[in-house]
């Protein structure tokens, strides 16, 4: 997903001279070609993220479309005031690309986990948050990002994720994508939890439980219309995110549903990390399983809710 994102940007820079690439001390890999092709618009800069968000704002105030790429924790937490004031208050078309959204960097420890990034950005007016589920969807995010008129956060997953997005379906920032229809259970997912929910739906189907999966690649602005439409016909709703359950997708859906009046005869649960600093190292898969985000645990959670009296 990360390589796709970088390659898309490389291609886009060829035909759109407004695009400027800013990186903060990233691994060289496929980036060397940028310097050769676009020496004036490629900036590999130091480890001073606050400054780089401000610099991106200055470039955008001068007609450029900057894409600023670094590790998700540092691009969101450390520069929060610059994001809020320099980008959002000015409503500038700066794109923040966060590597390792979620627990991708789990082996590196708690300082490197980005599991509140969407929450802190969601309360910034004008900010848009997109978490694509696979490399194919990343291509569509990148294509749509160029002319998106607001600040945009693109949350990158680990990469090599199974492709489940469907090219025949339309893609639009802010529009959730139904990937599976039917039944009494609805998973609302974002990023790579979509694959897991689709697998959980297969498991549930083996037990005769039909399940819908609504992939909300855009967490802000939330596609309230599509969510409410899908919620109406189900009994059980679960949000799933590689993020704390406070403030992100689950929080946003909870706020929406609480005010919708639709919840009285339904069961709702947010699945994600609780309000703690997780301490586990190890693989992304193991940690997600522990916190209930494996296909099996998702299926169990759905079945549990389904069997509770409403």
């Amino acid at each position: 997903m990360r390589r796709t994102c970088t390659n898309c940007l490389y291609d886009m820079m060829e035909y759109d001279e407004r695009i400027v690439y800013i990186g903060s001390d990233l691994t060289k890999r496929e980036l060397h070609k940028f310097r050769e092709s676009y020496p004036d618009r490629y900036f590999m800069e130091g480890v001073y993220e606050q400054h780089l968000v401000g610099m991106a704002a200055g470039l955008a105030l001068s007609g450029k479309i900057p894409y600023f790429n670094t590790i998700a924790t540092f691009i969101t937490r450390r520069c929060y005031e610059q994001i809020l004031v320099d980008l959002c208050m000015h409503d500038l078309p700066v794109r923040l690309i966060g590597n390792g959204g979620g627990v991708v960097y789990a082996p590196l420890g708690g300082t490197h986990l980005a599991i509140e990034d969407m929450a802190i950005l969601r309360v910034a007016p004008k900010m848009t948050i997109v978490a694509p589920c696979d490399a194919e969807e990343m291509k569509r995010v990148m294509a749509a990002s160029v002319d998106w008129p607001h600040p945009l956060y693109i949350r990158l997953a680990k990469g090599g994720d199974e492709v489940v997005s469907r090219p025949e379906l339309p893609f639009e920032i802010g529009k959730a994508v139904p990937l599976r229809d039917g039944g009494d259970v609805l998973f609302i997912t974002t990023g790579i939890t979509t694959q897991r929910a689709l697998q959980a739906a297969e498991l549930l189907a083996q037990d005769g439980v039909e399940t819908s999966v609504l992939h909300s690649h855009t967490v802000k602005p939330l596609d309230a219309e599509e969510i409410l439409k899908r919620v109406e016909s189900v009994r059980v709703i679960l949000t799933v995110e590689e993020h704390r359950v406070t403030g992100g997708l689950g929080g946003a859906v909870a706020e929406l549903l609480a005010e919708s009046g639709l919840l009285s005869d339904k069961r709702f649960r947010r699945i994600g990390f609780p309000d703690i600093f997780t301490e586990e190292l190890g693989s992304q898969d193991l940690i997600m399983e522990k916190y209930g985000m494996s296909p099996e645990t998702l299926a169990v959670a759905a079945a549990e809710l389904l069997n509770q009296p409403s």
Binding site: F43, Q50, L52, G54, G58, L61, Q82, D86
Partner: peptide, 9 residues
Amino acid sequence: SIGIGMALA
């Protein structure tokens, strides 16, 4: 920082 972005542009 904002001024530097403008100067770079």
